[in-house]
Amino acid sequence: MDGSMQNTEITGSFTAAAWERIKPLMAEIERLPLLERLSDGTLPPEVFRHYILQDAIYLKHYARCLAVVAAKAPDNAQVLRFLGSAQKAITVEQGLHATFLSQFGISSADVTAAEPSPSCFAYTNFLLATAYHSSYAVALSAILPCFWIYMHVGEGIKGRPAIEGNVFQAWINTYGDPQFAAGAREVIALTDIAARAASETERADMMDVFVRASQYEWMFWDSAWRLETWPV
């Protein structure tokens, strides 16, 4: 998967170091069966249904994390930026879900009744706890992997030859879209600005949560592939 980030990495920046830190993890993400099969249109429908239901749960909580980050932002421009992201998480991406929910025979009752998988539950609670209890810079680093990794994956898949009749093309188009990439790059830039003003201890915390959230990104996709449920 081609996920070149030359335009977003700045030598010596916090985000360049963070991306370098997760390179081995990104290699594992790029090899995930769910993403490979989504790319070529062969993903089993039951796996995609599981993924979309879990993603709907995730986005509901992620939107709240973005709103908390907005409340901690140091200026009005950044407040508005993350409030706008929270709104998009609820509206734009849920519109994509609505298309897929109908296409894959998932009712609104199914969505209401869905429970988070262990991986979804752990990831969303990690994000919410970090957003509520940490500084703006640290909270920003926790939400960044969702933006950045989805951009990386989306651009990589979008760069491959399109598969005619791929029922997952709308998903590919959403995360491979230049507007989504522009939004992700803005969050990368804001994270670097916050890191420059942070203390050494705070920067260490920023790196820790960035890595942990990236690990959860892998876990989320892998858990959907395995149709993960609670073991007891």
Score class of each variant (00 low, 15 high):
Leu53Met: 06
Gln78Thr: 15
Glu30Asp: 14
Ala17Met: 14
Ile172Val: 12
Arg81Leu: 11
Gly41Thr: 15
Tyr51Trp: 04
Ile10Phe: 15
Arg37Glu: 10
Thr91Pro: 07
Ile29Gly: 00
Leu96Tyr: 15
Leu144Phe: 03
Val153Lys: 02
Ala198Met: 13
Tyr175Asn: 13
Tyr150Val: 02
Ser134Glu: 05
Ala182His: 03
Ala63Tyr: 08
Met207Thr: 02
Met219Gln: 14
Arg212Pro: 02
Glu30Val: 02
Trp218Met: 12
Phe126Met: 10
Ala198Ile: 09
Ala56Ser: 05
Ile188Arg: 13
Thr15Cys: 03
Ala139Thr: 06
Lys60Gln: 13
Ile106Glu: 09
Leu101Phe: 13
Leu25His: 06
Leu140Phe: 00
Ala189Phe: 13
Ala194Gly: 10
Ser4His: 06
Val187Cys: 02
Trp218Leu: 15
Leu190Ser: 12
Tyr132Cys: 15
Ala113Tyr: 00
Tyr216His: 11
Leu59Ile: 00
Met206Trp: 07
Ser223Gln: 01
Leu127Ala: 04
Gly3Asn: 11
Thr124Asn: 13
Ser134Asp: 10
Asn173Cys: 13
Ser223Thr: 11
Phe147Tyr: 04
Ala114His: 14
Ala182Asn: 05
Phe104Leu: 13
Lys158Pro: 05
Ser135Gln: 11
Phe180Pro: 01
Leu83Gln: 14
Arg160His: 08
Ser102Phe: 12
Phe147Val: 10
Gly156Glu: 00
Gly3Cys: 10
Ile29Asn: 00
Ala224Ile: 04
Ala137Glu: 04
Ser4Gly: 09
Arg185Ala: 04
Phe82Asn: 08
Thr130Met: 08
Trp225Ile: 04
Arg196Cys: 01
Glu9Thr: 07
Phe104Gln: 02
Ser214Glu: 02
Ala77Ser: 10
Gly159Phe: 01
Glu164Arg: 05
Asn7Glu: 08
Glu36His: 13
Thr201Cys: 14
Glu200Thr: 12
Tyr216Gly: 09
Tyr136Trp: 07
Met206Ser: 10
Tyr216Thr: 09
Ala139Trp: 04
Ile172Leu: 01
Val68Arg: 03
Ala129Ser: 15
Trp221Phe: 08
Leu32Trp: 08
Trp230His: 14
Glu93Arg: 00
Gly3Asp: 10
Glu93Ser: 04
Pro74Met: 05
Thr99Val: 12
Ser108Met: 10
Gly165Ser: 12
Phe220Trp: 07
Ile157Ser: 00
Gln87Asn: 07
Ser102Ile: 14
Ala70Ile: 02
Asp55Phe: 14
Phe48Ile: 04
Met206Arg: 04
Phe220Asn: 05
Ile57Cys: 11
Pro178Leu: 05
Leu101Thr: 13
Tyr51Ala: 01
Thr229Ser: 08
Gln169Trp: 05
Ile10Thr: 14
Leu66Trp: 03
Met1Asp: 00
Thr8Ile: 12
Ala122Trp: 14
Arg203Gln: 13
Val69Trp: 00
Phe210Asp: 07
Ser107Ala: 12
Ser135Asn: 09
Phe210Cys: 08
Asp208Arg: 14
Gln78His: 11
Ala197Pro: 06
Ser199Asn: 10
Gln87Glu: 13
Pro118Cys: 09
Ala194Lys: 06
Ala86Met: 14
Ala213Ser: 08
Thr201Tyr: 03
Leu227Cys: 12
Trp171His: 05
Val232Trp: 08
Thr201Ser: 12
Pro118Asn: 09
Gly105Val: 14
Gly156Cys: 04
Gln54Cys: 08
Gly3Gln: 08
Glu115Met: 07
Ala197Asn: 13
